[in-house]
Design a binder for these strands. Structure first.
Lengths: 159, 159
DNA sequence: CTATATCGCTAGTTTAGCTAGCGATATCTC
DNA sequence: GAGATATCGCTAGCTAAACTAGCGATATAG
């Protein structure tokens, strides 16, 4: 039962370092959550709507177009909820719905200039700070860190 | 939070490495989100309730007791919403409300054995996988990684 | 050509947050 | 000590944003 209440007690300095890294991952996730919370407050938006906006910005930068269906899938909400979400974003002037050129059932979603500007205005400071603390590390160190973070992401997804 | 959202084209290998680390942070965050999503589905629980449970488990492991007020503060929801949250957790058998020994207005929240067991049953596999990919790194490498992750968390919180 | 699948939407329901404010208790000020 | 004020958790009622069910239009498979 002690394995339940205390899953792992470090015995060596190495194990201690492992534990600290795992704790720092959780701390990072908490910080990211706080950042998201702050942004949604600043932009007067709920978390899901902000996530949708973010997803559309990423897709746009990859040169992909976005459909309501894809938004639903990405956010893991129903297409009905997505319709309402898009209604909110559209009436707030963040997105536009256009007809799909070949499929007359479908829509193509686009971001407005206002949307991009607002998003980056709120996000760029965070990004700048993150870059500021990242840049001092050497290229080798960054490769190590990047490799580790990728390892962990894959480990999480695999389990 | 998306990192890949800024018009920034790396010019040098070092800048490329910086960008890749920032991208890997986003990927990690996405993976953590998926993990949380999966756990809340498995445990038939909403995200906030799960976060409350997690917070209580962390506090318990530090030997601290938890009050409804502290849950509210941690989750940034009202005490009224917290009452309902605790109602849900209590009726599902995850927590118990006990009188505070000295303050008769206050309550002390405790986890049930069932709660700990359920949480760790769903979480331990993820933790195990994370530990598996973390352990091969040397102590020095882990310290470097831990320091960087802490730096980033602080940078996010500071901006 | 007919049958089935898909797309986005509407209608109505449920969940989980919110504000306002209450009773009990604790603490501060005189 | 007594009275004023603050704090704790709660209830009541409201709202936002998810859900399910299902529809009309259109596309695609047999």
């Amino acid at each position: 039962m002690s394995i339940m209440t205390t899953p792992w007690v470090p015995q060596t300095p190495h194990q201690q370092a492992v534990l600290e890294v795992l704790l720092s991952i959780r701390a990072l996730n908490d910080a990211m959550d706080r950042m998201n919370g702050g942004m949604k407050d600043d932009m007067d938006m709920n978390a899901t709507d902000l996530a949708a906006l973010r997803m559309m910005i990423v897709r746009e930068q990859r040169g992909d177009s976005v459909s309501p269906h894809e938004v639903a899938k990405h956010l893991r909400i129903s297409t009905a909820s997505t319709t309402k979400l898009l209604d909110r974003l559209e009436s707030a002037g963040y997105i536009e719905r256009h007809p799909h050129p070949r499929d007359r059932r479908a829509r193509i979603l686009t971001l407005t200039a206002h949307s991009r500007a607002t998003f980056f205005r709120h996000f760029s400071e965070h990004l700048e700070q993150m870059r500021r603390v990242t840049e001092p590390y050497t290229e080798d160190e960054l490769k190590l860190i990047g490799r580790y973070l990728t390892d962990v992401s894959q480990a999480i997804d695999a389990s």
